[in-house]
Nucleic acid binder design. Structure first.
Lengths: 154, 154
DNA sequence: CCTTTCTTGACTAATTTTGACCTTAATCAT
DNA sequence: ATGATTAAGGTCAAAATTAGTCAAGAAAGG
């Protein structure tokens, strides 16, 4: 691997300390200091190289004892199915169509009955309770996409 | 649990002495002294980590013989607590408080890990994506109440 | 060139730590 | 009994400690 930029070096470093651990926790300032870069460069590296598409989940906390946690996740085998479903949802979706998708998830055994029921409650018109139909359908789409995205990994 | 800050350490300590006991009584000054922090830090730890949303009930008494009593509440054989939790959510709730509740549901085994993860995704700020904070917190409250209500009646 | 990626830094946000000041309850002296 | 003293715990906000965002400028690739 040829490291052209310091970002590449930092990426390689983080991956090396990840090693066999499923997750690591770093202090942003410490890493930045170690490579003599500004702290926000760490955010850049994480944003461009440790996102879900690349199989990583990142969480962080500010304040005293703050940290950035990087976790490697396994993307599922049927990731394609989920990505297709997500692509099909688009910007807005009706309650009926959402229910169809949830039903598909259940039939494909991607979710349990109970998970499906909870999702149905979540996307219900009454729950979202938006001012107009358009807002409601957009919100429902965001919610559904977020849920499907979460299903993409274990 | 990784203890990064002294607050985390105190949290872990209190949970460890809680052990199997349903409740403990501590003297604030004593704990503060033990960890060499100011007494009000104990209040901070309790406020942020031992509230109802976290599955704890706290009572205290001032003056001579004063104490702070921390009690773990049981969601399983106490439908009242679930009701209290729902009532506590009210009209609006922050993402952090919602997350605490969901975590409690998981710890009390009312929901599975995956169900909890999906719920967390649903109530996330990014998912709801409302115009202003108030709208966001109201929507989140409706969503969470709908989900909890569903759990109550299944 | 032109576009994309990287680097920097000023400004912002979240969380923890600390301390000054307040309230409540028990005990003691009269 | 009553008022003073002592012994808890409570509140709140400032200061300290982390991390996040965003946009401008620099560098690298095509």
């Amino acid at each position: 691997m040829e490291e052209r930029s310091i970002s590449d070096v930092i990426e390689a470093y983080l991956k090396s300390i990840l090693g066999d651990d499923p997750r690591i926790e770093i202090r942003r300032a410490e890493i930045a200091d170690h490579f003599d870069v500004v702290p926000s460069q760490i955010n850049y590296v994480i944003k461009t190289r440790f996102n879900l598409q690349n199989g990583y989940l990142v969480q962080s906390k500010r304040g005293g004892g703050g940290y950035i946690r990087i976790e490697r996740v396994n993307l599922l085998d049927d990731d394609d199915v989920l990505q297709m479903l997500i692509a099909n949802i688009g910007e807005a979706i009706s309650e009926k169509d959402a229910a169809k998708i949830i039903k598909t998830l259940y039939e494909e055994k991607l979710i349990s009955r109970r998970e499906g029921d909870l999702m149905l409650v979540g996307v219900a018109k009454q729950t979202l309770n938006q001012a107009n139909k358009q807002a409601e359908e957009r919100l429902r789409a965001r919610l559904l996409v977020a849920l499907l995205t979460r299903l993409r990994y274990e």
